[in-house]
Design a protein around this nucleic acid. Structure first.
Lengths: 137, 137
DNA sequence: CGTATTCTCTCTAGCGACTAGAGGTTCAAG
DNA sequence: CTTGAACCTCTAGTCGCTAGAGAGAATACG
């Protein structure tokens, strides 16, 4: 049986976050001591590790809730799981593409403004005048 | 003089967002009609276009406030502007790197789980067991 | 001039995923 | 048995908006 603090260090999830996960129903309620403190089982620890890993991969809380729900039904076909992963991967790829365009534009901005004063700063000019942008956003 | 709606369509910033920007002091207050409706000048429109563009580039509201503050002092040296851009570019690059690692891991997960049932789904297994991950995150 | 429609006003509350702090209680070590 | 760390609940704050209620203003048309 783990205290909430031990569970936090074991999983790398902060104590208030664990309580928050309980509050929103993502992590089941723990047993309590006579003095009302939470005590966690190994099952809780595994579930929280799963949650943390999924969060690091960018899955939303509702997505994680569904993944957990699916994993609780071993007979369920795998397709639903794969769909969630595929959607998440597409979302990540989209974000990468978007950020890459931004990076290019920022790179173009950086360097043009060297040593002058703000009055003729190309960066500020570029920010004010959208038409200088290469790609759409 | 533009109504808030015209300003919204002119800049692509939604009406409630414009009012929000005024509220937090990013966009100065507009003149008002006798009936208390906002009327905007071309200067407001330019400033809002600047804000929108900067937001699209991922600058935070405090960053934008500083950029606007700097641009209001034409004698100010350019270095501060460049620092903000450089920091933002670095942040974007970091995010791209992080997302690229995630994408790789998601790609690895996708495909392994083909047709089976959840009981032996590698995806769920991978999520539960962090040790399978290639890179750190 | 009347009316109908569209726009605008203020205000409050909500989103996601936590995080911070106040003020009080319980546990474990020495 | 005392100390001090860890724990409890609760409220409120973060960021950048977004949504909705209920009411007033502006404009187009007949």
């Amino acid at each position: 049986m783990l205290t909430i603090g031990k569970l936090a260090t074991a999983t790398g999830v902060k104590v208030p976050t664990i309580r928050y996960y309980e509050q929103i129903g993502l992590l089941g309620e723990a047993e309590r001591t006579a003095g009302n403190q939470r005590r966690y089982s190994a099952a809780h620890r595994d579930r929280l590790a799963f949650i943390r890993h999924a969060r690091e991969l960018g899955f939303s809380v509702p997505d994680i809730a569904e993944l957990l729900r699916l994993s609780a039904h071993p007979d369920h076909p795998c397709a639903d799981v794969e769909r969630i992963v595929r959607d998440q991967r597409r979302a990540v790829r989209d974000r990468i593409a978007r950020l890459t365009r931004l990076e290019a534009e920022l790179a173009r901005m950086e360097g043009v403004c060297s040593g002058g004063s703000v009055a003729d700063c190309s960066v500020l000019h570029a920010l004010g005048d959208h038409s200088q942008c290469s790609g759409a956003h």
